[in-house]
Design a protein around this nucleic acid. Structure first.
Lengths: 292, 292
DNA sequence: ATGTCAATCGTTCAAATCGTCCATTTTTTA
DNA sequence: TAAAAAATGGACGATTTGAACGATTGACAT
């Protein structure tokens, strides 16, 4: 319930003595604040950050308000994908959350978690869906669960500096796929940007208005579904011209953008994966990653 | 409209017990004045001064513990609504999060937070949107922020018991409003149910399949937008008949269900608000609230 | 004004934490 | 391999914290 943890709680959660934990705090390995009487208090996210930096795993995750360990943790990417897929299909949110957090604590970048696990799991679900192996509600439920997990992850990524360059984006009207734009937001934040996803189904006009008002350095458009091609291109051109007028990098991506569609579009970059996106923005030198 | 804070407010704001706060006041660490009866009252500036002088980080990730840092905490429901509306429109996620968590920490039920603050704030935004006072992207961004906040809140609501009755629900194809069904899930969980929202845009057939497979005790349908009335009714009837065949309570609600529409529908309950929903499920005696 | 209920009062008390020292274990160095 | 260095876990008295208690006060509605 409370976000601030006492030394005893943290020591039990990590599985070390309180004496060691105290030393780590004093050495600055775990960020901690002091009460008036000098007692140490730690925030959940700081403890997780410590675990992540030292490659440790929590023994009693429930004390850190993380899901309880119920099943075997995943040791390889393939296992992670399999467990995540299974958890998402069965509606087992704890399992799914556990898989993602295990990866996160194992210092896997959000970019890799997204590209190599979450996207793969959703692709596998999509395949089984088109084979009528799974019900549509399972796919929708999986998206909901993923959304919650990404929200949790998002809360752990350090607050962006106010001076970091701004990036905004989302999907156009008629495209309801939330996950890609959520992942992009997370990955850009990890890369040091002040990224804000505006969600799905945005009219092109208001995206132009947002660019006018907020003057971001980068604009992303995720395209997972195109209803009418002519409408899409018309809307997109509006955005493209606006972005160029304001000297804003425009990055596009998504399964719906095959070579045929891309031929009819102009943009600063097209990205097939989150990794591509990270590499591209690294090249622009506009933002520095938060950690080495 | 006094700027003075009570011990309870301050204690919750800085995340310590009232007992400790009292001691600190008595030691002169926090300046406080006394009412005639001897109760302590603290000024916002003095609390801020205390935070600054003791090196507590008003800057870092402790936003949840230090809601008072921007002196923007809300003391009345009206203030909460105003601050939330402002935060959501400006894209100030920290402010919005603080408003909701302040209410939660003040033991406001999620039901009331939803009905009386979040829904009201979104309604106010909707009004200003139809007056062309705000851009559509601001409304969409507000929904995204609310979604994240509700995800955070969801993570704090105690794990449901495995034996609690199951409730599932969502919105039909063509209805993309996520927030109502998210709120319903939260409120039902608070009321002791094992509630799972399947998200938005679900085909009626798969909802029936979900009912067949999962056999919930309750099914909710949130209806915020109706494209074609005949299509909607056709889909709904499918769900209604399925629910009755399986003896599942079916509860409907949402702005799109006016009296005309309702006349053409059958259901076990129609709810105008989260409070109505809670009262209805309390009457069914199927689940007990987690507290009290 | 009067009554009602939640918040706060001052106090007490058990549990937790503080800083520090020391024995033991693990890692690094000679 | 042996010695040195570093990290760990446990124990100590003194201090701090959080939760309880009955009595009093504040805010608000009638």
């Amino acid at each position: 319930m409370d976000r601030s943890l006492t030394p005893k709680q943290v020591a039990q959660a990590i599985g070390v003595s309180e004496a060691s934990l105290k030393r780590w705090c004093d050495k600055g390995l775990v960020r901690a604040v002091r009460t008036e009487g000098g007692h140490r208090r730690m925030a959940v996210e700081d403890v997780l950050e410590f675990l992540r930096s030292t490659g440790r795993r929590p023994l009693h995750a429930d004390l850190l308000q993380l899901p309880v360990v119920r099943s075997a943790t995943s040791f390889t990417l393939e296992e992670s994908i399999r467990n995540l897929t299974e958890g998402l299909l069965a509606g087992d949110e704890d399992l799914a959350l556990r898989v993602v957090f295990d990866l996160y604590l194992a210092k896997t970048s959000v970019c890799d978690i997204g590209d190599r696990v979450i996207v793969e799991a959703m692709r596998s679900i999509g395949e089984r869906w088109s084979n009528h192996d799974v019900e549509p509600y399972q796919e929708r439920r999986a998206c909901e669960i993923c959304g919650h997990i990404l929200s949790q992850l998002r809360a752990l990524i350090p607050i962006l500096s106010e001076t970091a360059p701004l990036a905004i984006g989302g999907t156009l009207s008629g495209d309801a796929y939330r996950m890609p734009t959520l992942l992009i937001e997370l990955v850009l934040r990890e890369a040091g940007w002040r990224a804000e996803s505006f969600g799905t189904g945005l009219p092109a006009e208001t995206l132009c208005a947002a660019m006018e008002t907020l003057r971001p350095k980068l604009f992303w458009l995720s395209v997972s579904h195109i209803g009418s091609m002519s409408e899409f291109l018309e809307r997109y051109n509006l955005i493209y011209e606006c972005s160029q007028k304001l000297k804003i990098f425009i990055v596009v991506g998504g399964h719906a953008l095959d070579a045929d569609v891309r031929r009819q579009m102009q943009y600063n970059a097209f990205c097939d994966s989150l990794r591509h996106l990270v590499n591209f923005v690294a090249g622009t030198n506009l933002a520095r990653p938060l950690v080495g």
